[in-house]
């Protein structure tokens, strides 16, 4: 495949931040991922496109250390991390913004943000200041209980909490789910802005159109296998992708 060669050429020039090779994961008898391959380079926004149950969440969670891989390798900055504990990976610089804006609803906004810094309490004041600069709304609501936030605010809180761990790679699982289109635009703008600040972003999305428009590269995941990969522009033009994920 042409796109694959391109990726490999890219890999030679620069070491990938996150490399996933031949990764298989199963829940009991169900194979959620089958020999999946993926690379994320520093400074990129990479989007993972796939339908419900294609294995997007499994891939992200396995990279974070939630699931133990059946086989295959995961490397972060060249070091193998497959099967390592989540808190170690978070300390190493990976973090995940979970699907469905998973914030702790009964805790205050500030508590939620501080939880993100659980493994990295050193410069917590500085990080908090930075998050508040990006999301002034969170500072205004810092003593409010997270349950009272709107959907968009919760997503911002979840992203802000991830930033508190001073990550290098932010994985965002389906940020647009259940949000109004205008809020979705905001969220994607924020992600683009964070990328310009130097954060590398791995995004999973069903909303392929908007996601591809803000991403550099993309992978298509179908029933646990990567079936297609390439630059965002290539994928946007791909007739198969257009038919299956862009509704055109």
């Amino acid at each position: 495949m042409a796109s694959n060669d391109q990726t490999r050429a890219h890999a030679d020039s620069q070491q990938a931040l996150l490399t996933i090779e031949n990764l298989s994961v199963s829940y009991g008898h169900v194979n959620a991922l089958k020999h999946a391959n993926l690379q994320v380079f520093k400074g990129e926004i990479v989007v993972l496109i796939g339908a419900n149950g294609a294995g997007k969440t499994t891939l992200l969670e396995t990279a974070l250390g939630i699931n133990t891989p059946l086989s295959g390798a995961i490397r972060f900055k060249g070091k193998p991390i497959g099967g390592a504990a989540v808190d170690r990976n978070v300390r190493a610089g990976i973090c995940l913004v979970p699907e469905g804006r998973g914030v702790f609803a009964s805790m205050s906004v500030l508590d939620n943000l501080l939880l993100g810094a659980h493994n990295n309490m050193k410069n917590v004041g500085k990080h908090l200041q930075r998050v508040y600069e990006w999301f002034p709304i969170l500072e205004k609501r810092q003593d409010q209980i997270a349950r009272t936030l709107s959907g968009g605010e919760r997503q911002m809180l979840a992203i802000g909490r991830a930033l508190m761990s001073s990550p290098e790679l932010i994985m965002v699982d389906e940020p647009s789910i259940g949000l109004a289109p205008i809020v979705v635009n905001d969220i994607f703008n924020i992600l683009r802005m964070l990328n310009q600040e130097g954060y590398t972003i791995l995004l999973s999305e069903q909303n392929a159109n908007k996601a591809l428009k803000c991403a550099h590269r993309g992978y298509v995941l179908e029933t646990g296998t990567v079936t297609l990969s390439g630059t965002a522009a290539q994928l946007l033009d791909d007739p198969g992708v257009r038919e299956a994920y862009l509704g055109a």
Partner: peptide
Amino acid sequence: RPGRAFRAIAEDPNGARLVGI
């Protein structure tokens, strides 16, 4: 900090795990 982690786990153990607690 430990108290915050206690409350997080009490509310949602899986969520707490995702955050890296």
